[in-house]
Design a protein around this nucleic acid. Structure first.
Length: 609
DNA sequence: TTAGGGTTAG
């Protein structure tokens, strides 16, 4: 397809995010050619001529070595194999997830002056996107124009998908607008669903809905995928009524919901704890002959387990098998999680063994679930045994696994073992995350090892990695618990100097500490300070201060804060209420206090008698 | 059948 290439390529340069300089010189120098990659191949010279007689010859390629060998064979064949055959080979490699190899072979083709077409270049663009280098995808677009080809709706869709997957949402939106406004191609259902999905993934469901409405006005109408994507994300936002409205709308428009639509809705209902409604929908899909798949069953099984209905979940596994769906690591993971939640570790272990005996490979996550179960039951040796078994099964414990075990060790007070494992984790090059540090700080502090916790905090500060205010909150809480108020106060004050954003939890922790140390005046001053720095006190703050005042005998101040709570619409917590009740016998005549209590009473009033 | 699309675990 050759037409007015110059005009198009001139127009194309107007893309602000397409840095031609960066991209044009980029990928040829950065990506190796296949000959420099360590692949072994046998050059028998007949491989390709033998295989090409079979239909869909590339589908018979089983591994990378075979593909490279075949490719070399193809380069030597005369006359040259067709561009379609080269494309089939590259496409097979994409299916085998060998994206870097696709890029390398493409480079070899260009070097050998083998003609390429828009199909091959789109495969290469897709490969660049899938290795996280969408900018090089745009450089291939430059080759399109040089070769006299025009990018079409599939090329642009691939690039849009690449931009969204690399979180370049602004660039993706800009490109999409350009495609529409300048009519670079006619968007189709796939393009719309990529854009809708990309917007939903960053939580911008409302713009995604606008795109859906926009498509209604065009030639290409929204389809089941666009609707399902919107429905799924509304469910994730817990907006089930809105999701159901879209469901109803699509049915009325004659767009048939499929297994994904139903699975999303069922998932949404399960998350809201509406099990019966979820089952109703499940039966509805059966009635309409829409077969639930392994995902649908896993959603239901997981939902039942989280509700504590494990026996029903086990029954659902039987139904799933009867219907020809094979339970997978998710299924067994959900069951294990259910048993773990109830502390039924023997049954959880039996599910684990059942999974292994049925040749379902446990995933890292299934290990994490059962390890977490053992840790919660303080059965740390059993957890440790499974943890050490993982590498033998070819699974490397991830950050979550380490975090779980660390938490378990600290929970039972094994601080030295936790420290050792924490070191081991770092020596193994395992990534630490914000939870790792929180778990360590919390565990050390809780076990009275405040000095070690402070030392760790200094290390984290020096590395400036994952430093968050919650870490200071943990330490301040620990210092106050040990009645080290001076140190707690010093740390608290240092946060202002460090320029860290204090949150309500920091203030609430410090105010709790001050109240527990009888330092009421300081606690009240701190509460006043919250307003000054626009970190306004919340319901928790007021409950803390009221309790502090009552314990410190400052009833008048307690009353003042109670009135303040009433004005702000804050409720009494049960513990505060019980503190007030303790005081009542001596305050039976204090009408103002009684009135305040009546207003703030958190307990439902009995029906009028 | 020469290229691009949506769902489930701490």
């Amino acid at each position: 397809m050759k037409r007015n290439v110059c005009a198009v390529s001139f127009r194309w340069r107007a893309f602000s995010f397409f840095s031609a300089g960066e991209a044009e010189k980029g990928f040829f120098s950065r990506f190796p050619s296949s000959s420099s990659l360590q692949f072994h191949y046998t050059a028998n010279g007949f491989q390709f001529s033998r295989m090409r007689s079979e239909s869909g010859f590339a589908n018979n390629i089983k591994n990378v070595d075979e593909a490279v060998s075949l490719f070399r064979d193809m380069l030597r064949t005369r006359p040259l194999p067709s561009v379609i055959e080269f494309n089939q080979l590259l496409d097979r490699l994409v299916k085998l997830k060998q994206y870097l190899l696709v890029i390398s072979l493409y480079k070899d083709m260009c070097n050998s002056r083998i003609p390429v077409n828009e199909f091959i270049m789109t495969v290469v663009i897709n490969s660049f996107c899938l290795v996280g280098r969408v900018e090089f995808g745009f450089s291939v677009l430059g080759v399109f124009f040089k070769c006299g080809h025009l990018p079409n709706v599939i090329t642009f869709s691939t690039l849009l998908k690449g931009l969204f997957s690399q979180n370049r949402v602004g660039d993706a939106q800009e490109l999409f607008k350009k495609i529409v406004n300048e009519k670079l191609c006619e968007p189709n259902e796939v393009m719309y669903s990529i854009v809708i999905d990309g917007l939903c993934k960053i939580g911008n469901t409302s713009t995604a809905i606008k795109i859906l409405r926009f498509t209604e006005s065009g030639r290409c109408k929204p389809n089941v995928i666009s609707y399902s994507t919107i429905i799924d994300n509304l469910c994730k936002d817990r907006m089930h009524d809105e999701a159901l409205a879209f469901f109803k709308e699509m049915v009325e428009k004659g767009i048939a919901p499929n297994v994904v639509t139903y699975s999303s809705l069922i998932h949404g209902l399960c998350n809201l704890g509406k099990r019966e409604e979820a089952m109703k929908l499940f039966n509805e899909m059966l009635k309409f002959k829409i077969s639930p798949n392994v995902v649908t069953f896993n959603i239901l099984i997981d939902g039942l387990c989280k509700e504590g209905e494990i026996e029903e979940a086990e029954l659902m596994v039987k139904i799933m098998i009867q219907r020809g769906e094979k339970p997978d690591a998710f299924t067994y993971g959900a069951l294990m999680d259910g048993y773990c939640l109830q502390g039924r570790m023997e049954e959880a272990r039996r599910v684990f063994d059942r999974m292994v005996s049925l040749s379902v490979d446990p995933s890292i996550q299934t290990y994490n679930i059962i390890i977490n179960g053992y840790c919660k039951k303080r059965k740390i040796d059993a957890a440790m045994h499974l943890f050490r078994e993982m590498p033998q099964k070819g699974l490397n414990p991830n950050t979550v696994t380490y975090n779980t075990i660390l938490q378990g060790l600290l929970y039972v007070g094994r601080c030295v073992d936790a420290q050792e494992l924490f070191n081991e984790m770092q020596n193994d090059g395992q990534k630490l995350d914000i939870y790792t540090h929180g778990i360590m700080l919390h565990g050390l502090t809780n076990n009275g090892h405040i000095d070690e916790a402070l030392w760790l905090l200094t290390m984290i500060e020096n590395n400036e990695q994952h430093l968050s205010i919650s870490m200071y909150n943990i330490i301040i809480h620990g210092l106050c618990k040990l009645r080290k108020f001076d140190e707690a106060r010093a740390l608290f004050n240092s946060l202002f100097l460090k320029g860290l954003d204090l949150d309500k939890i920091t203030f609430n922790t410090m105010i709790t500490g001050l109240c527990s140390g009888g330092l009421l005046k300081e606690a009240k001053e701190l509460l006043a300070k919250m307003g000054e720095i626009a970190c306004y006190p919340n319901e928790v703050t007021y409950n803390i201060i009221v309790q502090g005042c009552l314990k410190g005998g400052e009833d008048a101040n307690a009353l003042m804060y109670l009135e303040e709570m009433d004005r702000r619409g804050f409720l009494l917590h049960a513990s505060t209420f019980s503190n007030i009740l303790d005081l009542l016998p001596s305050k039976a005549n204090d009408h103002i206090l009684l009135k305040a209590i009546q207003k703030l009473n958190p307990i439902e009033k009995p029906a009028s008698s």
